[in-house]
Write a protein that binds this DNA or RNA. Structure first.
Lengths: 122, 122
DNA sequence: CTAGTATTTAGAGCGTGCTCGAGGTCAAGC
DNA sequence: GCTTGACCTCGAGCACGCTCTAAATACTAG
């Protein structure tokens, strides 16, 4: 709610949102679709600034597909890089999990089943 | 540099960093290894708070593997969820790219090679 | 010894993306 | 008519993760 208004203020919304007689917003399907696109771009880490730029391009109409494409391709490569990085670092997490699982299974023979061996442990 | 000191202040560093006689930090391999782990956790989106908690657990020594495991598993599932989300939204990006590529190729026949058709359209 | 560079601290400041609050307006239900 | 509640605007505030500054100290080259 507050966020929608914020996105609007931030210039992320392509077309001025329709209002009823008393000034309240009436979102139409197109608005919702666009907002969904914004949300997905945000979810992939596109900064507000960039979405604004994209929104500007879209609202300008046809003729700037070149730049829209460039923008999306740039973002895509960021996203792919980020995915690769996270994927890579997930290995560490998995490794740690393995280690702790291992220790706990091994530990079933001492600390965990005879916690008195290590007083104060936990 | 600044960031290392910040991490230290924030309680992310397990063991107090060694200092030389005049008080300057001397990072040893273990420090660097740990900092690398922190960086990787950060890169997967683990908040500073959580890393601090993890660092506390590690510095406490053996006996809390249960909690370390829980922490890592929780983080892992966040990361996996995030990966899935990004992966999902990447489809939209790819779709947009396809659309713009299509328009540009199609457009080679009109706007782009006869931009006068749409005056003012960049 | 001196000048210049690097590092130290504590604390302030910043960029991003929301998120909330105060005060006002309007429509609907009683 | 009056209350209730949803929405309005504008501006302030907040959470996070750094990032930088200022003033002091220390090492390093000449």
């Amino acid at each position: 709610m507050h966020t929608l208004r914020y996105y609007e203020r931030a210039g992320l919304v392509v077309t001025p949102v329709d209002r009823n007689a008393s000034g309240r917003r009436r979102y139409h399907q197109l608005d919702l679709d666009w907002i969904t696109v914004c949300a997905k771009l945000r979810a992939t880490g596109m900064p507000i600034k960039t979405i604004r730029r994209y929104a500007q391009l879209v609202s300008t109409g046809h003729g700037n597909e070149q730049e829209r494409l460039a923008l999306m391709e740039a973002h895509r490569s960021n996203v792919v890089a980020k995915l690769a990085e996270i994927h890579e670092n997930l290995k560490l997490i998995d490794h740690k999990i393995d280690v702790y699982r291992g220790r706990l299974t091994a530990g079933d023979a001492d600390q965990l089943w005879a916690p008195n061996r290590q007083a104060g442990a936990r």
